[in-house]
């Protein structure tokens, strides 16, 4: 960098005493004055509304995609179960449920725990990632 030019720029910017009879000084003054002008462009009055509409649309699209994945998962699960039943000739034996009857408290805890996890997920994870 040219040190003299740099010093001159600094002085003009700081409004310190410089030789106004010099063409460089006058040219720099014009440059600094013009550079302070903002671009002649303003966004439309409805800009914020348009952005919010876009956000809503994107969220709805994400929700639809999530439901589509859920539906596909359910269909695949049912299909896989049906295939397993056919291939293994599985027959439903309800006897194990009688054994489970002795652990009602454990079952209730399991269900409550899963529900709690879902609640925590909604409150913490989704709060930090609103677009999800």
């Amino acid at each position: 960098m040219n040190r003299d030019e740099e010093k001159l720029q600094e002085k003009i910017e700081a409004n310190m005493g410089v030789d106004d009879g010099h063409a460089d000084t006058q040219a720099y003054r014009q440059v600094f004055q013009a550079l302070e002008k903002p671009p002649r462009y303003a966004l439309s009055d409805a800009f914020a509304d348009n952005v919010l509409r876009k956000v809503e649309r994107k969220e709805q699209r994400s929700l639809r995609v999530a439901y589509a994945w859920l539906a596909a998962g359910i269909v695949l699960l049912i299909g896989a179960c049906a295939a397993v039943v056919m291939l293994t000739e599985f027959t439903f034996e309800a006897g194990f449920l009688r054994g489970m009857a002795d652990y009602k408290g454990l079952l209730a805890f399991g269900v409550a725990f899963v529900l709690l996890l879902h609640w925590v997920d909604k409150r913490l994870i989704h709060r930090h990632h609103p677009s999800r």
Binding site: A23, A27, Y28, Q30, L35
Partner: peptide, 19 residues
């Protein structure tokens, strides 16, 4: 950028015009 712009202003307007 400012040096370049200053040089162009002098070139276009001429030194006499600026003084």
């Amino acid at each position: 950028a400012r040096t370049l712009l200053k040089d162009k202003v002098i070139k276009y307007l001429g030194k006499e015009e600026l003084l």
